[in-house]
Design a protein around this nucleic acid. Structure first.
Lengths: 143, 143
DNA sequence: CCTTGTTAGAACTAATATGGTTACAACAGG
DNA sequence: CCTGTTGTAACCATATTAGTTCTAACAAGG
């Protein structure tokens, strides 16, 4: 299976940077993430639309619109990793309705997949950007 | 984000069919899943390699190699939905080591993503093929 | 032996998502 | 006005996916 887009990890990286540095520009962020500034801008637009950050056009610089204690990985996930229909599990769409198994299997599977996804999202919602910022700071100290 | 491959849902469908019908051929299965037989064979090869089913070449027909009580959705997931490095969360690969955040963020995120994935897999491991077969049978009865 | 129905799999295609890149417009402050 | 920045469209190379065509191998019945 294909991995999830790395947009989520880049977005978390971006938020941690904005929470740590004073108003970094897109180019500075791109330098830390190590990618093209346009890629950063694309993701920052999604974070903006989700109400997580504010960006000053023209003059540059961005800041968090919410306390990092109140931004969870699930918030970021929803902001940047939108899946059609909100279900990450792809399903074959036209099982044969003439077959009893074909007719009933889709609904039964959907329920199980939804539960599995809910478990993942519940875990993501328990980690905040603050927590990651703290980890970065702590590991940095001993040097 | 792109949805996961529908191989997982097709594989579950296949296993439920094999557990329900007596030795269905690939074409019959393809009829119920409503796709090309080669797609079915591709998935069945993975299920074979995982030791979940046995297929009789030439003469046709397949059967489960394990009691459906002992096949979980996680088993099927592992059989067909292999992700490189076993991590479903893609991460940007070269954060700038010259930046404190860039240097430390990858490990911190990896831990959180792994936990989220574990939560999902744990939930998948709690549902068996038998359970889905039963649901199909039960819902079919009232007709 | 040979016909038939099947599994096995290589090779190819169209559609789609993705990260990256270039180019240019809009904007704000000195 | 000049400069550095954000905003965005357009395009590209790559990879995954489900699907398709085609051919070979195989096993059983006649």
């Amino acid at each position: 299976m294909k991995q999830m887009s790395s947009r989520l990890s880049m977005a978390v990286h971006i938020l941690c940077l904005i929470g740590t540095m004073p108003a970094p520009t897109g180019d500075v962020i791109a330098g830390s993430v190590n990618t093209n500034p346009v890629v950063i801008r694309r993701i920052m637009r999604m974070l903006k639309q989700a109400g997580l950050i504010q960006v000053r056009p023209g003059v540059g610089g961005s800041k968090l619109l919410r306390d990092p204690d109140r931004i969870t990985l699930l918030d970021v996930y929803h902001a940047v990793d939108i899946v059609e229909g909100n279900s990450m599990f792809g399903m074959h769409e036209h099982p044969n309705p003439a077959c009893p198994v074909g007719r009933m299997i889709a609904g039964a599977m959907r329920r199980e997949f939804d539960e599995a996804q809910r478990a993942m999202e519940q875990r993501l919602s328990q980690t905040t950007i603050r927590r990651l910022m703290d980890q970065v700071g702590r590991e940095r100290a001993p040097s």
